[in-house]
Amino acid sequence: MDSIIFDLDGTIWDSIDTVLNAWNSIIKENDQIKRELTRKDLEGTMGLQMDDISRKLFPYLDDNTRKQLIIECCDVENEYLEKQGGVLYKNVEEVLKELSQKYKLYIVSNCQPGYIEAFYKYHNLKRYFLDFENPGRTGLSKGENINLIIERNNLSKPVYVGDTEGDLKAARYAGIPFVYAKYGFGQVSQYDDILEKFDDLVKMF
C-alpha cells in the first residue's frame, strides 16, 4: 500500500450541524419550502451527490427551483464551514500526522466546490493531504474521481476509507480495497477491513 484516499463526511468529520444551520438560513426565507430541515434529514443524504440530495429533500419542487436552491444553500454552507468548521472525529490530526509520514493522503468526497477547501481552512489540515477531488469540480462519480486521483498522482496501491454503501461501490469501481468507517453515517454490505474509530487507522496501517 502506498496511499490512503479518504471520504470526508462520516469518515474524518461530522459537519451536519453547521450545514443544517446554513441550509435553514436559506430555507426559512423561501416560501416554497414546506419546513426547515432536521439533522435526521441530512443524515439520510450522506454519500449522495447534490442532485440526488436535492431530489430527496425537496421532491415537491420543480427541477429549476431545486437546482437554484441547492446552489444558494451550498454557497452559504461553504461560508459557514469556513467560519465554524465541523466536528472532527477523535485524534484526527494526530492520526493524519502519523499516517502522512508513511503514506500519501488524499480526499475524494461527493461535495460542491469549496467544501473541502473550507474543511482545510477552518481545521488547518491541508498540510497532510496532497490532492483532492469532488463531483462539483469534475461532474464525475465518486469512483471516477478516485480514479482521477490515482492517475493524477501515479498511485500503485491505494485504499479507500469511507462509511457508506456509495463509498464501497466507488472503491469497487476503482478496483481498490475498501476500509469501512463503522463509526460514520452509513452501513455497507461488504468491506475489506473495518474501523471502529478513526485512530484505529494507526494500528491497521
Rank of each mutant, 00 (worst) to 15 (best):
I71V: 08
L140Y: 11
L57Y: 10
G139A: 01
G10M: 10
E36N: 00
D167V: 00
H123Y: 13
L48W: 05
K67T: 06
K97W: 12
T38K: 09
N91A: 00
K40C: 00
I26R: 07
Q84F: 10
R152Q: 09
S3T: 06
R152A: 13
K97A: 02
N153R: 06
Q101F: 00
D75E: 13
I33A: 08
V179G: 09
L57G: 08
A22T: 04
C111V: 01
L130F: 01
N154T: 11
I12H: 01
Y60R: 07
V108R: 05
K28F: 10
V95C: 09
L81F: 15
E79D: 15
D52Q: 14
K197Q: 15
N147K: 11
R152E: 04
N134C: 15
K28Q: 15
V19D: 06
L195Q: 05
G85L: 09
Y183P: 14
S25I: 09
D41C: 00
D14N: 15
S141G: 03
G86M: 04
R35C: 12
R152C: 06
I150G: 04
A174H: 04
I70G: 03
Y191P: 01
R172K: 14
C73D: 09
R66F: 06
D200V: 07
D17E: 10
P59Y: 10
R127A: 05
I16F: 09
L195P: 06
G162M: 13
L48C: 06
L148A: 04
I116F: 07
K142S: 06
S25E: 05
D41N: 08
V108Q: 14
T138I: 12
D7P: 03
D17L: 09
D9P: 00
K28V: 12
I176T: 04
Y173G: 03
L130V: 13
I53K: 14
Y115I: 13
D62Y: 11
S141H: 07
K203P: 07
T65Q: 10
D200C: 00
T65I: 13
E94T: 12
K182A: 11
S15D: 14
K97D: 07
Q190D: 15
P158A: 12
E72P: 09
G184I: 04
M204V: 03
S189F: 03
K102D: 11
K28A: 12
Q101K: 14
I149R: 10
G184H: 05
I194T: 02
D167P: 04
L88Q: 14
K197D: 13
P158M: 08
T11E: 05
W23L: 01
Y122C: 12
E144G: 02
Q32L: 11
C73I: 12
F129D: 02
C74A: 06
D51I: 13
M204R: 15
K40V: 08
Y173P: 00
P135F: 08
D14S: 09
G85A: 03
D51V: 12
S15Q: 13
I176L: 02
D2L: 03
L105M: 12
V76L: 09
R127K: 07
L168H: 15
R39W: 07
Q190W: 00
Y115D: 04
L20N: 05
N153T: 01
I16W: 11
K169I: 00
I194C: 04
R66Q: 09
G162T: 05
E82C: 12
Q84I: 08
I4R: 07
